[in-house]
Design a protein around this nucleic acid. Structure first.
Lengths: 136, 136
DNA sequence: GGCGACTTATTAGTATACAAACAAATAACC
DNA sequence: GGTTATTTGTTTGTATACTAATAAGTCGCC
């Protein structure tokens, strides 16, 4: 059987990710990247947590999460504080401005998910997401 | 309904891509990244073609494909030549070394695809790839 | 109580990925 | 034939993403 690049799951995954990023950026007046969005939503879920733990909970290594947190801080959405009980840790938490944004972020995220899955019917989406989740 | 990051298609796509990259790198004695692999396989499919066209056919913008081609050339898998009929173009083609590698690349690609899709049955794989393709 | 193992964070280096701006060459079109 | 538009390639800047090395703090355990 001939090898066709266009039928390989890795290649198609890359294309689908690209389309998702495009849809995300399309109607993003928030000035957040998909990665920053994930980290910010996760901070809201977890409350205050260490930078490295936030990275683990968003599947970013220590170098990546550092940059993401730096940029979220620069935009005023999160703040950094030392952990009184552990001098190694930098605790990340939402600023007031970040907290006020969360509901809007959720709505935004839902619409991006909806746009991305538009080519699939409701029942297909369920099956697809279940299978995709198994590939993580 | 509450917004759950872990159920959003964009986030799960990122996780699945990460796992695929991990599997790709795991048994890669070729020293190629997934992106370089895609470009190299595509060059083999297309024969000689311009750098920008190669980028379009592998879903990479002009800046990205330039870096990829540069690194493939440094590794000795492709060569660059001016197009006699169009002074703007840089034509990319396989070197002898690159051509000798292609069959091995195909086998390698198949096994990575297989590993990535391992959590799905044969019939599920078919359905999944069809749906994923629709999201590109 | 102290030593080795682990955790946390930073930094440097490499590789995608995309936008924007630019120069040179070619194509389109009147 | 000449002007405009398009295509090709390069460069710069920003943002993931991962590896590896390093330093500092904490924990496990005897």
């Amino acid at each position: 059987m001939v090898y066709k690049l266009d039928e390989q799951v890795g290649y198609i995954l890359r294309l689908a990710s690209q389309r998702h990023a495009l849809l995300f950026n399309k109607h993003s007046e928030l000035g957040l990247t998909p990665t920053q969005f994930s980290a910010l939503v996760r901070v809201a879920e977890m409350g205050s947590c260490s930078q490295n733990l936030l990275g683990r909970r968003t599947a970013m290594d220590v170098a990546t999460i550092k940059g993401v947190v730096t940029r979220l801080k620069a935009k005023g959405f999160v703040q950094l504080n030392p952990d009184p009980g552990d001098k190694r840790r930098t605790m990340v938490s939402l600023t007031k401005m970040g907290a006020e944004l969360i509901e809007q972020l959720h709505d935004f995220g839902k619409s991006v998910t909806d746009d991305t899955l538009a080519p699939l019917s409701a029942s297909e989406r369920k099956v697809f997401l279940e299978m995709l989740t198994r590939l993580t």
